[in-house]
Design a protein around this nucleic acid. Structure first.
Length: 679
RNA sequence: GGCGAUGUAGCUCAGAUGGUGAGAGCAUGCGGCUCAUAUCCGCAGUGUCCGGGGUUCAAGUCCCUGCAUCGCCA
């Protein structure tokens, strides 16, 4: 298996704000990249924005700003969307980056010199209002559908890429590499495109029509159009032609796209690479669409229309899990708040969260939280069970765990096999299968608890070794689960690891190879490891349905007063929605100065990633000098009602902690850019 | 209009090369446990596998056709 990987998302066009589709693609890319890091790969992830073209120029003109200014703003919105979703990329590329522009021109020149770009004239129906050509089919009664005017027939000269020349080569390449485009349905689709003769690709626009683009190096009356700009980001981001990253990562390149841009990536891009003398990418991974449905959810939880806001409401990790689990990669899927809450409660709160909770509570209660010595032979012997290894080729009959005779050795074997299967499935983008298998393991662990009844064993001192064995095994399973959960839910996995005393998950340097360690049959938690009782990983989301069910269950229990009053008003607790009302942002202090007549206050200018820095008044003069504040990264309450302090307006508040007389300003991680949202 | 995809339990969907009585989760009903986030475990149902033809010893799975939905292209 490759020990290097390079995965890209498309670069997103800056004519729209980030939405669920962008988020899905980017989350998938992050999960895959994290999986790579988990198995010890040097994994690189690139995303970015596509910023040239008509639409951007028009949108900018509508706002009376320069295209670059407009692109800057939207591009920044994309950049800031990812960190809150726990997405980490290695490069955020923009098509307006100088190094990208240079590479685009070099490749254009190279292909031109090779004779694969030619100049030609073509004519068509042109609508002056739309500034574009229409085909006969698009016209309504011979008129432009938008303007209801007759188009004029004009002739225009443009540059064309000789794509047809590479048609046969591409078809052969696809035949020879069955997983070049996957899943298979999209490979078939590309093949059917190629069954028809390919037309050459128009790659320019005259500057009389469009100036917001990259100049053709061989004719400055033209700019290049769309694909010879955008697609090239995948190699320009690596420093083609002689960058070290290019040599290292390109041989392992994989692209990730939604099905709407299959043709450019499945046909244009490989032929472009071929013409430029660059090896084709390894895989093109194609996913489907989310259709966003109405929520039937009750008012008690509140309706949130925008999916990305749900990520903040229910937590980014739960959101990521939902996306990965709910969609079969390649097919379309539905998104709604109801579905999200259903998955959350069933899979995360009840299955995983509760398993974690019950095991660690028993650990604390029966063994002071210390991982016991195993008493069974199979656990004293390192390495996977030979029987399990022999069964490897019969993967994945994981649903064999319905037997009531669950034993420790069975759990060990199942855990081991799940790891193998999980890794293999994740690696081919079958995330759903991988997660189903992982949840089968979680389910088996829950069954194992019921089958062994640790609470009964605990009552009999003679059963101590047996109890040790059961708890030992459960702890190991939880550790294995934690590792597998990490690519999908990194923050949750880190919490789990902390409770388990599992080292390695949180640290890049030693995380690599954890899966391999499990595969070799080693226990992740040694006897004597201190575990801690957790707070619920995923507090249940109370819906009307759940409340009704609880009430019903109580009634059935004989109408006795429940030990736990179910509707205790808790004034001191706030709901997550309440917290979400706060708009906390990362900022950088750009100026700091005293305020006349106030010895505790300072006037600050803070860059929150907005158009201009904001003015804040902060009571930190007794603890910080203006000089040491400039350049400091801070956390700001951005939607605080403005107030006037000593005659100076303050538009926000920065966060600090105090202990006795000392007071320290909260300083976020340097990886968070100004404007990054905090939650 | 052309190409392609999808249509399986009330809901969301798996069914990898055609082959044991068609599956999972959720929802529903019943039972068990009490370590746990009123969670967990067990049991129970319900399906003209979109309609109609065909190939085959055998089709949810392959072929043809019709309908519905979606995507790409023109």
């Amino acid at each position: 298996m490759d020990n290097i990987s390079y995965l890209t998302t498309p670069i997103y066009y800056v004519n729209a704000q980030p939405h669920l589709g962008h988020a899905y693609t980017t989350v998938v890319a992050d999960v895959y990249t994290r999986l790579g890091r988990l198995v010890g790969r040097d994994a690189r992830l690139q995303t970015g924005t596509d910023e040239h073209g008509d639409k951007i120029a028009q949108a900018a003109a509508a706002e009376s700003v320069e295209p670059k200014q407009y692109a800057d703003r939207i591009s920044d919105m994309f950049r800031q969307t990812w960190p809150p979703l726990h997405i980490r990329y290695d490069r955020f590329i923009r098509t307006t980056d100088p190094d990208h522009i240079k590479v685009v021109q070099e490749i254009l020149q190279k292909v031109y010199d090779a004779g694969d770009i030619y100049f030609a004239k073509y004519g068509g129906n042109y609508c002056v209002g739309c500034e574009r050509f229409y085909t006969d089919h698009e016209l309504v009664d011979g008129k432009c559908p938008d303007h209801q005017t007759e188009p004029v027939y004009i002739e225009e000269e443009n540059y064309f890429f000789r794509m047809s020349k590479y048609q046969d080569w591409l078809l052969e390449h696809i035949e020879a590499h069955p997983d070049f485009i996957r899943p298979e349905r999209y490979r078939n689709e590309v093949k059917s495109f190629l069954a028809e003769p390919l037309e050459d690709l128009c790659i320019s626009r005259p500057k009389t029509r469009l100036t917001w683009g990259i100049d053709l190096p061989f004719d400055d009356r033209f700019v290049t159009y769309v694909w010879f700009d955008a697609l090239i980001n995948y190699v320009s981001g690596l420093g083609w032609p002689d960058g070290r990253d290019f040599a290292k990562y390109w041989p392992h390149a994989q692209h990730l796209i939604a099905k709407d841009i299959l043709k450019p990536h499945g046909i244009y891009w490989p032929t472009m690479l071929r013409a430029a003398g660059i090896e084709p990418y390894q895989h093109l991974n194609v996913h489907g669409y989310w259709s966003v449905g109405e929520s039937k959810m009750s008012k008690s939880v509140g309706n949130v229309v925008r999916p990305l806001e749900l990520a903040q409401v229910y937590g980014p990790d739960a959101f990521r899990y939902f996306l990965m689990r709910e969609m079969t990669f390649g097919l379309d899927a539905n998104f709604s708040q109801d579905l999200l809450v259903e998955r959350y409660n069933a899979d995360l709160a009840n299955d995983l969260g509760n398993l974690f909770s019950r095991v660690l509570n028993m650990m604390a209660r029966y063994r002071d939280g210390l991982v016991p010595e195993p008493s069974s032979k199979s656990d004293q012997r390192p390495g996977p069970d030979p029987r399990a290894q022999a069964a490897e080729d019969t993967l994945p009959p994981l649903r064999t765990m319905d037997q009531p005779w669950l034993r420790s050795s069975t759990m060990k074997e199942l855990s081991w096999r799940t790891t193998q299967y999980y890794q293999a499935q994740m690696d081919v983008f079958a995330f759903r299968r991988a997660l189903e298998a992982l949840w089968d393991l979680i389910g088996a662990a829950n069954k194992y608890v019921v089958a062994t009844e640790p609470w009964t064993l605990a009552k009999d001192l003679d059963q101590a070794p047996k109890l040790d064995q059961v708890l030992y095994r459960l702890c190991q399973v939880l550790a294995d689960v934690t590792v597998m959960v990490w690519p999908v839910m990194p923050a949750v996995a880190e919490k789990m690891a902390a409770c388990l005393g599992l080292a390695g998950v949180t640290t890049d340097k030693i995380r690599g190879g954890l899966l391999a360690k499990i595969a070799s049959g080693q226990a992740l938690l040694g006897p004597g490891t201190q575990t801690q009782k957790p707070r619920p990983l995923f507090p249940r989301i109370e819906t009307d349905k759940v409340a009704a069910k609880a009430a019903k269950a109580e009634k059935k229990a004989g109408g006795k007063k429940s030990a736990r009053p179910q509707t205790k008003p808790r004034a001191e607790l706030v709901a997550i929605e309440d917290f979400a009302r706060l708009d906390l942002r990362v900022g950088v202090i750009t100026e700091a100065g005293p305020i006349e007549g106030a010895d505790k206050l300072l006037r600050l200018m803070v860059d929150l990633g907005e158009d201009a820095p904001r003015q804040l008044v902060a009571g930190v003069a007794a603890h910080y000098s203006p000089q040491e504040l400039v350049g400091m990264r801070v956390v700001v309450v951005a939607n605080l009602k403005p107030a006037k302090l000593r005659g100076v307006m303050s538009h926000g508040m920065l966060l600090a902690g105090s202990q006795g007389k000392t007071m320290k300003i909260l300083q976020p991680d340097p990886e968070l850019p100004p404007g990054a949202k905090i939650k």
